[in-house]
């Protein structure tokens, strides 16, 4: 082997390692910056008090609760629909036009830009169904956005259920639906939940779909009904950083809100990823 070729191989290896180190240190620097800036703003009062004085002081309890409410509404819609879609695709689907249309639709939904979901939510939920700019409209819009993620996760969860389980159930005389309900879904349940946790991470951080479907610039109270507007953490960050009454003065609040959102989103994602890894190890051990 010529020296030149070996040298090239070494150089390429060094280059690849340095790109990895570069990306990782960039990520680390970003996180370190946000934590160091946001840390000082965090306090019990910041998390539990409402914003006051034109949002230049006080805490962020209203956007925190609003984000949780949005997550609940969106999951209440997307989880059942997504799981049933996956059940259809894995258990019932034949190679016909409906299956192809369904696969194409899920695939297309996954690529729709988030701001286009916002436009759709405005035209459909807010105006056509007359839900108004509300928690319900915004939550359902986010649910549509989360749908393809949940379908994908549930589909792989159902596919991972061994064929033997189904055959054993049929051998006992169970119908296909009884098999799905009593054998397949319970077995796949933990993996489906990890998929849902990951999509919560996605939903909680989204801003564009809720700007014109239900996010409030400012709301004095928590949303009491599905038809109230809500404040949300990502929208709160956008408002304070671009349209607040005093952008420079509220920087500490902005850093604090960013950190809270980041802890929530990355915490959710980390939980989902770790739990999924554990489930996979257990599945492999069972086989």
């Amino acid at each position: 082997m010529s020296v030149n070729r070996v040298a090239k191989d070494r150089a390429a290896t060094v280059l690849l390692w340095s790109i990895m180190i570069l990306v990782c240190s960039m990520l680390f620097l970003i996180l370190a910056f946000l934590v160091s800036k946001g840390w000082t703003a965090l306090s019990w009062d910041f998390l539990t008090k409402k914003p006051r004085s034109m949002m230049t002081a006080g805490g962020i309890s209203t956007p925190i609760i609003g984000t949780l409410q949005l997550v609940l509404v969106s999951m209440g819609f997307a989880l059942p629909v997504g799981v049933f879609t996956a059940v259809y695709l894995v258990e019932y689907a034949r190679d016909d036009w409906f299956t192809r249309a369904l696969r194409l639709a899920v695939r297309s939904l996954a690529g729709v830009p988030s701001v286009v979901f916002g436009l759709f939510g405005l035209a459909f939920f807010v105006i056509l169904l007359n839900f108004g700019s509300s928690l319900l409209s915004a939550g359902l819009t986010l649910g549509c956005l989360a749908l393809p993620v949940i379908v994908g996760a549930s589909e792989s969860a159902l596919l991972a259920v061994p064929r033997d389980y189904r055959d054993a159930s049929y051998a006992l005389g169970a119908t296909q639906w009884q098999t799905i309900r009593k054998v397949v879904l319970p077995t796949a349940f933990p993996s489906i939940i990890t998929g849902a946790i990951l999509s919560v991470g996605r939903v909680a951080g989204e801003t564009a779909p809720i700007i014109f479907t239900g996010a409030a610039f400012f709301a004095p109270r928590f949303a009491k009904s599905l038809f109230d507007q809500v404040m949300a953490l990502p929208y709160h960050i956008l408002i304070l950083a671009t349209a607040g009454t005093n952008i420079e003065k509220t920087r500490p609040i902005q850093y604090g809100t960013v950190l809270v959102l980041l802890i929530f989103v990355l915490g959710m994602t980390l939980t989902g990823v770790l739990w999924r890894a554990r489930l996979r190890i257990r599945q492999r051990a069972q086989r």
Partner: peptide, 21 residues
């Protein structure tokens, strides 16, 4: 199950429809 699954198709069609309309 098929009916619930078709909601996904309906959403995609409605997105196209409302944007065109």
């Amino acid at each position: 199950v098929m009916t619930v699954a078709s909601i996904g198709v309906a959403i995609m069609l409605f997105i196209l429809y409302s944007l065109v309309r």
